[in-house]
Amino acid sequence: MSADTAVPAPTVEVAGLSLRQLAWRRLRRDRGALIAGTVLILVFLIALFAPLITSMIGINPYDFDATALDPSKGSLPAGPWGSMSWEHPLGVEPLTGRDLLARLLYGARVSLFIAVTSVIITAIVGTVVGIIAGYKGGRWDTVIGRGTDLLLAFPQILMLIALSPVITQRLVAMGLAPDVARVFYLIIVFVFFGWPYLARLVRGQVLSLREREFVEASVAIGAPTRRILFKEILPNLWAPLIVYVTISMPTIIAAEATLAYLGVGIIEPTPSWGKMLADSVRFFTVVPSYLFIPGTALFIVVFAFNVFGDAVRDALDPRAGRG
């Protein structure tokens, strides 16, 4: 290497960035994250404005359309591909002739609402309980540990089926419409059976974090326990929490589909992606597009969640290289 090729180091202004600014900057440079994030925002916007969009196109998720069905084929869609047409861009539902695009858009509202709400509540409950169990230890840990063991030992699917009418009736008695009651029922059970997993994960992390010297140092500056838990320990838990959220989001959408298939999920006439998937299986050989439409939508959302979650976790790690 000769000396005269040496270029003076460019004087880069290294400004201190807060973690949020740093994460935002890294995310903007990550093309995968940008695409995934855009997709997710689009999906959420579509779900939010589903009534507006459908009325603009002139479709409706609840109206039966006998003209799109062929009575001679047992009320299957008259045209190919589920009778796709300008009138019904993604075809119609067999037997009823309801518009699939409209049901897909409305279904996104229900499915995403259930998934997001359950995951957020689960994350809060599981994190708080896990932090307390891990940090307090002793009796707290024993009680919480046995509690989670008990819940995890429940045969969940059986419980879900058995509890469904009881809880739904309670909610209806409280003044909710039956289909809305089902939505709340699903959220309640997903949270109820979901938090123990997260609480265990968090507890394990906290057990090792609380022995770290920075926690001792924080005690030594006279910080109260609440502050240590939520200002010192919680920031170290973001990575596993984000992974948990991105993994459980698709799991819950899939669980919602399973329950719909078993007849304890979303009920008529409300559409959801899970319910569409469950209904479509019976018609797979004759109308395959009916299965592929909600399936593809689910795949895109799940994939986008995973890519975005990964990127956010990387971006939030201050130890990763500056980007």
């Binding site: 201190g16 807060s18 973690l19 770290r212 010297e213 920075f214 001792e216 140092a217 924080s218 030594a220 500056i221 200002k231 010192e232 920031p235 170290n236 973001w238 790690d317 201050p318 130890r319």
Partner: peptide, 18 residues
């Protein structure tokens, strides 16, 4: 107050120094 031996482990890795 107490100054700890190893500042790297006595400082929280995910919180800014300030």
């Amino acid at each position: 107050a107490m100054v700890f031996q190893d500042a790297l482990s006595a400082l929280n890795p995910v919180t800014s120094v300030g």
